[in-house]
């Protein structure tokens, strides 16, 4: 039934949007493609898993695991990318460094945790489902939609309404001019790392809950989808990541429902290729305003 598929698609899309928002925020403000980003998703999922295994409620485990992932992101950015930024190294250098770090981090996680799929303890979330006009919405799905809605609203308000968002946009566009205005670039870089790591971590917890399957490489799988989503939305564009995340999640679910579930994962990449052919700047990407 179509309405049910739409709800399921919205749930999947919300997790994609959250993940893509963090990725695009990092790229948009810091100007780097940080390949370790997907790892923070795995970190969030595992931390929430361990917390719930020790009896912590999922309502508390979700924000804590997400924030802890953000802290890991700040740490890794500080270790790997801050020195490169200081040396004004070319973009390729940061790409290579984060690629190396990603391989190392996943190998370590794999060695420590094995690739076995783990599941949340039973009863971590109320197994009942709401039934509205014949559409079933599980508590997990409610949590995902609510959490994503809250996080996205806060992020949009910060970027467009709050003073700090103005500083972030200034830093993204012209780091030197922003520093001349008194913007403390180092502090804002840490803030962006924290925020994007938190978004990745939150999406990891929610994806883990949605499929009830957690393993170290789950972030790597999402990373590929994340690329498709942010290119479709327009690199570095917040609204774009949000809309494209929902679109990809929705189309994947509909493909699985009406075509074949084996085709589901192709959707993102078909959209990726189409975007690059037809509108390389993405749905919301604008051509850079020509500077006089």
């Amino acid at each position: 039934m179509f309405a049910q598929q739409l709800v399921n698609g919205l749930v999947v899309g919300s997790t994609y949007a959250l993940f893509a928002l963090g990725f695009t925020l990092m790229f948009g403000v810091l100007g780097v493609i940080n390949l370790t980003y997907g790892f923070y998703l795995s970190v969030g999922a595992f931390l929430a898993l361990f917390a719930t295994q020790h009896g912590v409620s999922i309502w508390l485990a979700l924000p804590l695991a997400a924030l802890a992932s953000g802290c890991v992101a700040v740490l890794i950015d500080g270790l790997l990318l801050t020195p490169l930024r200081r040396a004004k190294a070319p973009e390729l250098a940061s790409l290579m460094v984060t690629l190396g770090a990603t391989l190392l981090l996943y190998s370590l996680a794999n060695a420590a945790l094995s690739t076995d799929i783990r599941r949340f303890p039973p009863g971590v979330i109320d197994a009942n489902a709401l039934e509205i006009a014949g559409i079933r919405i599980t508590m997990t799905q409610c949590l995902i939609i609510a959490a994503a809605g809250i996080i996205v609203s806060v992020l949009l308000w910060v970027m467009n309404g709050a003073r700090i968002g103005l500083g972030l946009r200034a830093l993204a566009e012209r780091p030197d001019a922003a520093a001349l205005m008194g913007v403390n670039a180092g502090a804002l870089v840490r803030l962006v790392s924290l925020a994007s790591g938190t978004l990745a971590g939150a999406s990891g917890v929610l994806i883990g809950l949605n499929y009830n399957a957690i393993q170290p490489y789950m972030g790597e799988v999402m990373m590929l989808k994340g690329f498709a989503v942010i290119i479709l939305g327009g690199l570095g564009d917040i609204r774009g990541a949000l809309v494209a995340g929902l679109v990809v999640g929705m189309l994947e679910t509909l493909t699985a429902g009406y075509v074949a579930s084996s085709w589901k994962d192709a959707v993102g990449f078909v959209l990726l290729v189409l975007t690059l052919w037809i509108r390389p700047s993405g749905l919301f990407g604008r051509l850079a305003v020509k500077r006089a």
Binding site: R174, D176, L180, M181, G182, A288, V289
Partner: peptide, 28 residues
Amino acid sequence: MAAHRIAALGLVQAPEGRQVFANMTIAE
């Protein structure tokens, strides 16, 4: 000294090539 601290001391620059934030409004 870091640029943002120098600005905070009251030494402020209008840089070469204007360097306005093109994607922001004049008010911003």
